[in-house]
Simulated scan of single mutants.
Amino acid sequence: MNLQPDSKPQLEDFLRRCIAERGSMSFVEFMGHCLYHPEWGYYVAPRQRIGKEGDFFTSSSVHAVFGRLLFRQVRQMAQILAAEAFTLVEQGAGEGHLALDILDAAAEQAPELYRRMTYVLVEVGSDVRRRQEQLLAPHVAAGRVRWADFEQLDGLEGVFLSNELVDAFPVHLVEQTAQGLREVYVDWRDGEFREELRAPSTARIETHLAELGVSLPVGNRAEVNLAAADWMQDVAAKLRRGFVITIDYGYPAAELYAPLRRNGTLMCYHRHQTSENPLAHVGCQDITSHVDFTTLQRSGEPGGLRPLFFGPQYRFLMGLGFVEMLMELEAREPDPNRARNLRLTLKNLIMPEAGMGETFKVLVQGKEVGAPPLHCQRTLADIRLPLG
């Protein structure tokens, strides 16, 4: 039985008081409170978010294969850097499953690298940190894991990793009207939160869209993730030398802001049910929007980040040996039914339509590393499969 709450009266009261005192608030502020309020925010307060008892699944919650394949790329990056100490930072690690799979793989397959690596977790909620500590206890005891605030990071040499982080950054929600671009604000009227359209809260919104060459048709809505641009600039500044791996669902700007996407991409997740109403289940549902990967690439360039790979998740995983690992796992499984179930489970990671393979994208950027040939860049023609 799922006993998780459907609303948080304390957060609703807080938001109503803010509106009563200052007037309607921009949607980006409303979303920020819903997700990251220090006491009642969705990502801060105790709650099961990932998995069957939560609100959604992630690639790392599907199977350990995702993390083990990702470790293959991380291991190569560590070899390229050839430094005495190797740091792997993961921001927004959730329950810590991806960290566990990567650390397990490192301990088993590359003990020398494991001994000199530090896995740094950047997390906003103390409850999440507590659960991560429990899950990663053996690696914590081995001195391989520590926690840090994002502001504390500096002079990194290694890999900065995020998996489904940027989609949960608060976004400005805008609509193109016959009178010009308007921003969505949230008000409290007639006993409920309601939208209203007002002039943009910052000139950065229109400047951002103009720099991308985006002109929304009248009636279209879209999300503008200014926080993502700022974040990538900060990541570039904190990385002295190394790589950035960003995994998330999204598109290049031209596709994200295409005229056919009339309602934008804002989506909410609550108990594995989706909706397009971010004003409901305040503090108890995830609110996301698709990531603009063009902005992430452009924002990293002034700080020295150069794109090395960008493509759908299925291409990334195939390049890292997904097919070979699947065949190996199936060969080890004597029960044909379990082998079939394994195959069906892992297909979720690469299937373009029903699974995560196409919508999810992977961006790999490098700083002060040149243009090395990465494992993830392998094409299908490069993959040599064993014969029958």
Rank of each mutant, 00 (worst) to 15 (best):
N2A: 10
L385R: 06
A237F: 06
G319N: 01
A106H: 03
L305G: 02
M232L: 13
G191M: 00
E157K: 11
L161N: 06
Y185N: 01
V186P: 10
K367D: 13
K52C: 09
G242V: 05
V224S: 15
V218I: 12
H272L: 00
Q109V: 07
E157L: 03
L11E: 08
S60E: 10
H208E: 12
V159C: 01
M1A: 02
V140T: 12
S61R: 11
V128I: 02
L308N: 08
F30E: 05
V65K: 01
A229E: 15
A236T: 03
K361L: 13
Q152T: 08
S215M: 10
V174F: 06
A106R: 09
P302K: 12
R378V: 00
Y249F: 11
K367T: 10
I247H: 02
F293C: 03
P259I: 12
D382V: 03
F310C: 04
D190P: 04
M232K: 04
L387Y: 14
P259V: 10
R204Y: 12
G311K: 11
R47S: 04
Q79C: 00
H272E: 01
G32N: 11
I50S: 03
G32L: 01
I245Y: 10
E358S: 14
I287Y: 03
F30T: 03
E333W: 09
E95F: 07
A45F: 06
G155F: 04
F57R: 00
D248C: 07
L346P: 12
G357H: 02
S289H: 02
D248Q: 09
P373E: 05
R17T: 14
K347F: 14
G96W: 00
M356T: 02
A371M: 10
L135T: 10
Q91K: 03
I383N: 02
Q365F: 01
L135E: 00
A331F: 09
A237T: 09
M77W: 04
K8M: 10
A199N: 10
H281M: 14
P38D: 13
A339R: 15
Q109L: 12
D190A: 15
T202W: 08
E276V: 11
L296Y: 05
E112C: 07
C34I: 10
L363T: 11
F71I: 02
D154A: 13
A85I: 05
H172A: 05
G191N: 07
M351F: 08
L342A: 08
V166K: 05
W40F: 05
H270W: 13
V369L: 11
T202E: 07
V140A: 10
L98E: 04
A253W: 08
A137G: 11
R130P: 05
L11D: 08
P46Y: 00
R261T: 11
R204Q: 12
G41P: 05
T265N: 08
R189A: 14
R194Y: 08
E206P: 01
A64F: 07
A141H: 09
R241M: 14
V89D: 02
F66I: 07
G158S: 04
R332S: 13
T58M: 05
